[in-house]
Amino acid sequence: MIPTPVISAQHLDIGYRTGGEGVKCVHRNLDIALYAGELTCLLGANGAGKSTLLRTLSGSQPSLSGDVWVNGTLLKGMSRHNLSRTIGVVLTDKTAIGGLTVREVVALGRQPHTGFFGRLSAHDKVVVDQSLEACGIADKQLRYMASLSDGERQKVMIAKALAQECPIVLLDEPTAFLDIVSRIEVMSLLHRIAVEHQRAILLSTHDIEQALVLSDRLWLLSRENGLVTGVTEDLILSGGFNNLFPHTEIHFDPLHGSYYPTVQRRKTVVVECVDETLLHWTVNMLNRNGYGVSFDSETSAMPVLRVVNKQSLVWKDAGCEVALHSFDELSQFLRER
């Protein structure tokens, strides 16, 4: 069965109209498909157009050409009211909600469903309760926003979007400014919401590490290659990440799912090591000190580093052997050579 995307667009041009006839096009010809029940991460360098794309998809900025379809309805034809019940957003905008309680902020998410004065019905209150519960902040509901940590605030904003009961939630860098624990918590929360509540969740982030772990699908956006999309593992294995940041100074390591600075190989050394973790960090130190690594021990011209354990490393070069007893000693040794 081929799933139907909740947001789709073909040949979408995004950018700004700069008064009069002026147009600043950020991207041309984007093909987009966002699916329900999945967490999708939008990755790209600063200035790649991530925010512009999110704004276009949330309907707060018109596309330059091409139509965005949301659940079979044309986005630009949707009423303000309908849109507010379909797409919820979490932004990085400055707010003035320090004097509101957590519960009051989450209840603001009910606004598209309440009447003229915003009075909450019994059902609205249940939805607010459930949203607070789902985001793990029910015990903090009477606290003031001002008293929360950045991570907790972000969870409140996600709970607000959840209370809005939109099938689609778009988040602009929800994990920026968060420490590693909060980043993982927020990303896991979003993934759980996507799966359990069958929402289509799209977020932009710079946190590639977490995106690769928790994202079902990735959108890679770059000025050079436009939008490349696919299931996370497919994109990694097919080398999609090599083109995300087109610089020669960094390269993507598909084994560890992370970018590394490209080594300026002045010398090469053969490494012999059985333990994988030990090998990884040995290579890490060698690379940092300007050594390329080879695993071909037949080449006799190159020096050999044999790593037995982290207290026992042996450097063999042109017949002479040096015994090293720690990575500290290896580091000293590499710098002195």
Partner: peptide, 20 residues
């Protein structure tokens, strides 16, 4: 008062909550 409460979140959030 309802749109004013939404405005506390900033105009873009308020817009997303259906405020004209």
């Amino acid at each position: 008062s309802k749109p004013l409460n939404a405005m506390l979140l900033g105009t873009r959030y308020a817009e997303n909550l259906g405020v004209n």
